[in-house]
């Protein structure tokens, strides 16, 4: 067990080092001065330039540069934003919770919808229910998330005017930014109209969350279905059935507990896809998260921010994968014999 964890952590360190190397190579390849791309300081004065050179050891070999690049980033120095000179790291810390909030809610909905539907599909294998659910999930999976978002805005926002279409909260509610999670921040704040603020925040959440949830939900349905099918064909299930247990009991007491872990581990593999959709969703619904910020940075050709975004998003994916991997191994001993886990 500990041996496995040590090996996994070791692999993690290497993977992150490679990620840093990739981003470092990107920074060299991107248009513009390397010093500017690394530090975010645009048109530096001579003194500033010298400081950057010594900070990132730009006068030394590329290997030194690479090492000091890693050092700066690990110490939380991601440079400053071109446009307003604020530290990029602070900005990311402010925006990341909004993205995570959106992803968590969407993932929750995807699981709440996808798991039961996946089980139903597996139980009705090759029957109408299975066909219908599988077809629906294939269709859902094929809808481009930006089209879905735009249509949702068109219908629920503009036509019916049920739901707000952009932003996190009506800006008149002056909610202090503490955790970055709107609902928690409202709870922590001391505004007068708390109840209304909750309602407003939830109304703002519904459309982006559902739009983002569609694709993961379809993925969950299919993964659950496949895993459940495997489990349902296993001998212990047949044994349980032979013992005359109630079919529901067979599913919920035997098949599901065994199926759920592979499902969860498969889903973590989708994290990077989820982040991609989240970025697009944020742009459509003007959600003030890291994705919208990165796309804006692209329009402004702000390479310091883009590279920081790549580093943080990919780092986030790697960390979550490793953690879920270790958790999985800790709870399922039989997986330890697997070759090795990977991202």
């Amino acid at each position: 067990m500990w041996f496995y964890i040590a090996r996994r952590v070791n692999l993690f360190v290497f993977t992150v080092a490679v990620l840093f190397l990739l981003v470092f190579v990107m920074l060299n390849a991107l248009p513009g001065e390397l010093a500017t791309n690394l530090s975010g300081v645009q048109n530096p004065t001579i003194a500033q330039y010298d400081a950057i050179v010594s900070q990132y050891q730009l006068d030394k070999s590329w290997f030194n540069q690479y090492i000091s690049f890693i050092k700066q980033r690990i110490h939380g120095d991601f440079g400053v934003s071109f446009s307003d000179g604020k530290p990029i790291f602070d900005e990311m810390l402010r925006l990341l919770p909004a993205t995570i909030e959106l992803c968590i809610y969407a993932m929750t909905i995807a699981l709440l919808l996808g798991l039961p539907l996946g089980i139903i599909a597996a139980v009705y294998y090759k029957k109408f229910g299975d066909f219908f659910l599988l077809g629906t999930s294939l269709i859902g999976y094929s809808i481009p998330v930006f089209w879905l978002g735009v249509i949702a805005i068109m219908y629920f926002g503009l036509d019916l005017q049920w739901l707000p279409v952009a932003g996190q909260l009506n800006l008149l509610y002056q909610v202090e930014h503490v955790t970055g999670f709107t609902l928690i921040d409202i709870y922590l704040s001391d505004i007068v109209y708390k109840q209304l603020a909750y309602q407003d925040a939830i109304a703002h959440l519904i459309m982006p969350t559902l739009t983002l949830a569609v694709i993961p939900a379809t993925v969950v349905i299919r993964i659950t279905r496949t895993t459940m099918l495997e489990e349902l064909n296993a001998n212990y299930i047949k044994a349980a059935q032979a013992r005359g247990q109630h079919p529901l009991s067979v599913i919920f007491h035997h098949a599901l507990p065994n199926a759920i872990q592979p499902v969860l581990s498969q889903i973590t593999l989708q994290l990077s896809t989820l982040l991609t959709s989240a970025m697009v969703t944020e742009v459509i619904f003007s959600w003030p998260g890291i994705g919208q910020w990165l796309i804006q940075a692209t329009y402004q050709q702000n390479y310091a921010i883009i590279s920081a975004g790549v580093l943080v998003c990919a780092g986030f994916v790697i960390v979550v994968t490793v953690i879920s991997d270790i958790l999985l191994i800790a709870t399922t001993p039989r997986r330890r014999s697997a070759e090795y886990g990977s991202v």
């Binding site: 909905i109 629906t136 859902g140 809808i143 879905l148 249509i151 949702a152 068109m154 219908y155 629920f156 036509d159 005017q161 049920w162 739901l163 707000p164 009506n170 008149l172 509610y173 002056q174 007068v192 109209y193 209304l196 603020a197 309602q199 407003d200 939830i202 109304a203 703002h204 519904i206 559902l210 569609v214």
Partner: peptide, 30 residues
């Protein structure tokens, strides 16, 4: 819009339900 509705309702109708409209004049005067 109707076509779009059709494409869309399947996924959304179940969850959206009825939610409060945000245009009341109750938040702080601003």
């Amino acid at each position: 819009i109707f076509i779009s509705k059709l494409c869309f309702l399947t996924g959304f109708f179940i969850l959206s339900g009825c939610s409060p409209s945000a245009d009341d004049n109750v938040h702080t005067p601003g």
